[in-house]
Design a protein around this nucleic acid. Sequence first.
DNA 1: GCAAAAGTGTTGGGCGTACACCCATGC
DNA 2: GCATGGGTGTACGCCCAACACTTTTGC
Lengths: 241, 241
Amino acid sequence: MYKEKEELPAVTGDFYEQSEKMYVATDCIIFGFDSGNLKLLLFKRRVAPLEGEWSLIGSFVKLDEDVSAAAERVLEEITGLKNVFMEELKVYGAANRDPGYRCISVGQYALIRLKDYDKELVEHHGAVWHDVKELPSLVLDHEQMVEDALEKLKQKARYQPLGFELLPEKFTIPQLQSVYEAIFQKELDTRNFRKKVFSHNVLVKLDEKDKSGSKRGAFFYMFDQKRYKKLVEKGNDFEVF
Amino acid sequence: MYKEKEELPAVTGDFYEQSEKMYVATDCIIFGFDSGNLKLLLFKRRVAPLEGEWSLIGSFVKLDEDVSAAAERVLEEITGLKNVFMEELKVYGAANRDPGYRCISVGQYALIRLKDYDKELVEHHGAVWHDVKELPSLVLDHEQMVEDALEKLKQKARYQPLGFELLPEKFTIPQLQSVYEAIFQKELDTRNFRKKVFSHNVLVKLDEKDKSGSKRGAFFYMFDQKRYKKLVEKGNDFEVF
DNA sequence: GCAAAAGTGTTGGGCGTACACCCATGC
DNA sequence: GCATGGGTGTACGCCCAACACTTTTGC
């Protein structure tokens, strides 16, 4: 970042005065899962310019705020949720990406449990869940962000247990399979799927059954975070699916 | 990025006037490969503050410049090289990461062929190649960047043919194996390695031999970009190693 | 009793891994 | 002729993919 003696001004409040400042924003690609489908939380702009168009939810990063903190703030402001899975996707840094002024955006994708979020808060912000297979056009480069996030999710889910982030704490194996089918966009074999998820010994079977999906009912399970962490520490870089 | 009606100022030169601008930089983690070891190009600061300390090479992103273009510019300014493999690593966005002024940095890692770069240019900038296993302390969060880049390289090299980016166009199989041993930080089995690299049919054997490494000499090969691209298009998401 | 989803095992093939010796050549 | 690195094949085990029927229960 520093190159030549001549380029370094004296130490002052702003060390780099001669250089060009710009806005840094962060946009959140917020995924949820419901009735067999991946959902995306979008916000409808109610004002010009781009009035009525759909957009991801984001914010400018403040001068005294970590970029990751900005994303967490946005997520909490709109859903009321903290401590959810969120990870950097990519920087969107084209010089002309924002007609307002030079602004780069750090895309961050999050996985949340649909039961948990604060519905009033979401409504108050005019945000709506959309099925990822039926998305409207989005402003700026947000469609690209969504595409990239879906691809990253697909890749990442193979090696990290992300599926659990989209389900309630108690979930059934058919539900879990359904999540992975939505992420990978293909059907999975029931027997092979069970074999694989059980093989790692990170699921705890409960006595309770979920009778909502069928007459017979399916047993609830929970994900054992501690056991998973131990596996990772032991250097098992296994495939989850 | 847009949230409430009240937050949108009228359209002017700077649409977002009330928000806070900051510097955006990019730092390049430039890898090379020589005599069995991964090398990193570092720059020694010759002035205060942090005089004499080693740093990655970077620059501020200009107002009218894509972030990726800034990284390409930095790389060319210091090595004379264009069109090399370069990819975004991660954003370094801690609020206090730079004592000069609020500045986020987009880390980008590059793989270059050591034979190709412009030695005079590198020297003129005071840059020096370091063995990655014997790195000095680096300024700011640059050590973290290097660590992250090495990890990413390890991951990525399994699924994408990155090894070729670090070698001359003509290379021998033992050289290629040596590159991968440096990336993965472990020894590989000669027979299995050959089996794997040949299995994809992306190497073209030349008649020429490289006699520099041994008396018997090893045949040169070239990487067949076209063939590789066809494989990828066909949806073969094979492991390279 | 029937519809609808939950749950359960086996087999074959391909792939990764482990392993040891001959070859070509310069000195 | 010997030292040095280049080059080759096989056997085993594991994991993945394909595949079909029984169980439970609400209606």
